[in-house]
Design a protein around this nucleic acid. Sequence first.
DNA 1: TCAATATTTCGATAATACTGGAAATATGGA
DNA 2: TCCATATTTCCAGTATTATCGAAATATTGA
Lengths: 116, 116
Amino acid sequence: MEKYRKSESALSALSALAQEHRLAVFRLLVQAGPEGLAAGDIAEKLDLPASSLSFHLSHLKQGGIVGVERQGRSIIYRADFAAMNELMAYLLENCCAGSDRPSPALSEFESKGEAA
Amino acid sequence: MEKYRKSESALSALSALAQEHRLAVFRLLVQAGPEGLAAGDIAEKLDLPASSLSFHLSHLKQGGIVGVERQGRSIIYRADFAAMNELMAYLLENCCAGSDRPSPALSEFESKGEAA
DNA sequence: TCAATATTTCGATAATACTGGAAATATGGA
DNA sequence: TCCATATTTCCAGTATTATCGAAATATTGA
């Protein structure tokens, strides 16, 4: 258990995604799957200057939703699916709740989780 | 059908949520449920100056994830659960994909949807 | 060791976002 | 109509984020 699911990490993941180029990069990485993509490939596909892309990649890394690994001369980025799932779980618990939800029951649960 | 689910709207919903105070406001509105909350109540609960809160509320409104309605002297804000569900659907389709996903099949589907 | 490749870091600039007091707007009640 | 309440809009100041060329750093292969 002990899923962290704190607002703090959700927030940094959200800010990582909340930018045109970064959302595009992340979607590309999701499509690429576990193999990931080299920074250069991303730059080419999205037609972004290397230094700008690097700025955004480091933001995605900070947000905890991509992983990095050097592979020879290239640096491979991959989507962190586990982190993305945690973000989804956070949003589901804290930001969703159909009109058919069991009143404030769920919110009490979440505020308890948040306290720690 | 014709779910919009475009990157553009996902992006504005994401930027709406990707800010400490706005995420807090939205969570509060989710807890409040369909009844919503008056701006003043939100300001009090989160201890935010009225003008700052108003700035953030308009951002949430722009992002399409809250609804507004005047009720006497107060202005009631409520979480737009349908919009939130659309965001979740977008993220699920475009930003998730377990390692057990059917290769690039899903991504082809989504790029077709995006074209329009 | 040297040159070529891949990427990041630096630094300067521009653009955007956030903050909060004060003034403006809308509403309801006396 | 006049006053109190609720909220927004305006505005200026501050802070954060984005952009991208140039220089710096790694890595590989000759």
